[in-house]
Amino acid sequence: MKRDIEIATADGLAKASIFRPDNSVGKALSGIVFYMDAMGPRDPLYAMAQRLADAGHVVLLPDLFYRFGEYGPFDGGSFANEAARAQIIKMINETTQEITKRDSAAFLEVLDDEGVVGPIGVVGYCMGGGRALTAAATYSNRIGAAASFHGGNLASERPDSPHRLAGDIRARLYVGVAGVDGSFPPEQSARLAEALRTAEVDHIIENYVGMSHGWTVPDRGDAYNEAGAERHWKRLLDFFEETLA
């Protein structure tokens, strides 16, 4: 069950959607923030959020690009278009990790208003992977589980790289890595692993051999891999069931 809302953030109104399982009235449900990929909220992400909700969660999928007004629409193939790619990259670069920190405070308040119970979970795909880790570090008293799939630049040289926040993370982490991904090369994976282990964060970094960046999202063309996507679903649903129950 999907419901569209607007969220009042420190910088304006963000469009978002809330997903619940059918017949969930009166049931105690955990809450999850779903951080989108770079193409923005659209039908394939809505289907993914609903599948997550049907496992027993209230899922919030916000538009992280709301500051730009109307854009796109984009889909999984838009990055191949030069004009669309330029617009997407601009929006990614201008939607900084610091901005996501501020926005996430409002996202958590929405889940509170929805009456969720227990620790919050977060999951992010592509650009959203780093946002999920950043949120986990920033709101460590609220977020108990954080997952990233084909997240880019999780341990880059940038001063706002999520791995630099490892010492603030109290959540359990699961990081699913594409076997071939220029946005998260092996040296970044090693750097992230070292930071998390040094900070004694309970974590798993799993390499999906043969998968490409975007393998979990159905509209990502040749990158999408049905078997790999189902493996990701098993890992994610089990991870949240174990951690948020």
Rank of each mutant, 00 (worst) to 15 (best):
R20I: 01
S156K: 00
E242A: 15
F19R: 04
R231E: 09
D103E: 10
G130R: 00
R170Q: 14
F240V: 04
E157P: 00
F65N: 09
G128M: 07
E206L: 04
Y71V: 08
Q97H: 03
G76N: 04
K2T: 09
V117Y: 05
V175D: 06
A47N: 08
R170N: 12
K27Q: 14
A136C: 07
K90R: 13
A171Q: 08
A55T: 14
A80V: 02
A190G: 10
N141K: 15
L133E: 00
G128P: 12
C126F: 02
A190F: 08
M1F: 05
V209H: 12
E114G: 04
E206V: 07
S212T: 06
G151P: 00
H150W: 11
G77E: 08
R42V: 07
V110N: 04
P73R: 05
G152N: 05
S24I: 00
A166P: 05
L244H: 01
W233E: 06
E157M: 08
G128H: 14
K27E: 13
S189V: 13
A47P: 00
R231Y: 02
A245N: 15
Q87S: 14
D222A: 10
H57W: 03
D238G: 13
Y35N: 05
S161Y: 11
H213Y: 11
K90I: 00
G40Q: 09
T216I: 06
R220K: 09
G130E: 07
T138V: 02
L237T: 11
L45Q: 11
G130W: 01
K90C: 04
A10N: 11
F19Y: 15
I204T: 12
E226M: 09
S212C: 11
E242Q: 11
E200Y: 05
A245R: 15
G26D: 03
R235L: 03
A132S: 15
G118H: 12
V201R: 02
A106N: 07
G214Q: 07
M211Y: 03
E6R: 14
V110I: 15
H163K: 00
A136G: 05
I89A: 09
G151V: 05
M91L: 07
R158W: 02
D113S: 14
A8K: 14
A55W: 00
R231I: 05
T100F: 02
G121N: 03
Y174M: 15
M127N: 08
T216C: 06
M39T: 15
L133T: 01
Y139M: 08
R235V: 09
A55C: 06
A171R: 02
D181T: 01
G40P: 06
D168Q: 10
G182Q: 15
T134I: 12
I88E: 13
N225E: 14
L173Y: 01
I89L: 14
E206A: 13
G115V: 05
L154N: 02
K90Y: 10
H232W: 13
D43V: 10
Q188K: 10
S183L: 12
G182Y: 09
V25N: 12
R220P: 03
R235K: 12
G12V: 06
H150G: 06
T243E: 11
A193F: 01
N93M: 10
A223L: 06
T198K: 15
T243K: 08
W215R: 06
P41V: 00
A84L: 03
Y224M: 07
G77M: 07
E114H: 10
G152M: 01
A193T: 11
G121D: 12
S189Q: 15
F68L: 04
